[in-house]
């Protein structure tokens, strides 16, 4: 066990309670989590706390992680699929300092993965927990502004209006243009906002062996998908749900089955498509996969060329 500096008696910095939250708060959140797991897709209200982070930057996810993390856990934090962006780095450091947590960038090694906007490409396994940061937990909110009404709609599974939204999309654009936070039906009962992950990731939630927890700090809601839960993306019989696809593979690792981000490489219109999951991409490159633009990108110092 690696003792954490903040726990040292002679440390001048303030000594936080383990994992920052007080034990009563953790208990409250765990109760909400238990209820959420018991009723897949149902939004459980909880007493969201102030965190040392602005609301809307992942306070819901942090509170869920803080309530479930233990010294034996290994934490991975991603933001838009990347382990190295500011938000991901800050949250990872937060738990390094307050929870004495081991951290990793390797999906397979992590026991808890806190995420904003992505699900890792590597398949999740039993025993892993995904923690999603959720800005807007209510999938019906844009359609029905009144909370009292949306709660009734969920209570009685009145989801016609959700379908109207998809109808409008197809009527106007010929297809459902929602590409992220694409609504899903959980366990055949509750319509759920999967947080702003791309719809590309929706199928990964279906029957996943991992436990998936969703925390919305500003909106004070927690919901969950227990392992092996049916998660179906809403669609029409004659306009079935489809995930995004790209005309070219990842420029760095050559993957043709991962979610790609467009990266502008210069001010002359140069661009490339690369894996949004940075760890997945690196892993593939370490294994010897090479994309067509890897050489160029290395020359521009956009990536380090990894020697296999």
């Amino acid at each position: 066990m690696n003792a954490h500096p903040t726990l040292d008696t002679d440390d001048t910095r303030p000594a936080y309670n383990y994992a920052y939250l007080d034990e009563q708060t953790k208990r409250m959140i765990r109760r909400a989590l238990l209820k959420a797991v018991a009723i897949p897709g149902y939004q459980v209200p909880f007493g969201s706390r102030e965190m040392p982070l602005a609301r809307g930057w992942g306070t819901g996810g942090i509170q869920v992680t803080a309530a479930i993390i233990g010294p034996a856990d290994t934490l991975k934090v991603i933001d838009q699929g990347a382990d190295d962006t500011t938000n991901a780095v800050s949250i990872r450091r937060f738990f390094e300092r307050t929870a004495d947590a081991r951290t990793t960038e390797a999906t397979g090694e992590a026991t808890i993965i806190q995420t904003r906007h992505r699900i890792p490409e590597a398949p999740l396994s039993a025993g892993q927990i995904m923690v999603y940061q959720v800005p807007q937990p209510e999938p019906l909110r844009k359609l029905e502004p009144h909370e009292a009404e949306t709660r009734k709609m969920h209570a009685w599974a009145e989801y016609g209006l959700m379908q109207v939204k998809l109808y409008e999309n197809i009527a106007r654009f010929g297809e459902v243009t929602t590409t992220y936070d694409y609504p899903v039906m959980v366990n055949g009962r509750y319509v759920m906002a999967p947080s702003p992950i791309p719809k590309f990731d929706n199928p990964k939630m279906h029957m996943s062996p991992a436990l998936q927890l969703f925390g919305a700090g500003r909106e004070k809601r927690i919901y969950a998908l227990p392992p092996h839960t049916s998660v179906r993306s809403l669609d029409f019989d004659d306009h079935p749900f489809r995930i995004q696809s790209w005309s070219q593979p990842c420029g760095l690792c050559g993957a043709s089955d991962s979610y790609l981000d467009e990266v502008i490489t210069d001010d002359k219109g140069g661009r490339m498509f690369v894996c949004s999951d940075s760890h997945h991409c690196e892993t593939r490159r370490e294994a010897g996969h090479r994309g067509e633009m890897l050489g160029d990108a290395a020359a521009l110092h956009l990536v380090e060329e990894i020697k296999p």
Partner: peptide, 14 residues
């Protein structure tokens, strides 16, 4: 016009 149809569970866009 379609909303009531979708309310009652119609799921065929056409």
């Amino acid at each position: 016009v379609g909303e009531r149809l979708m309310d009652r569970g119609d799921r065929h866009y056409g």
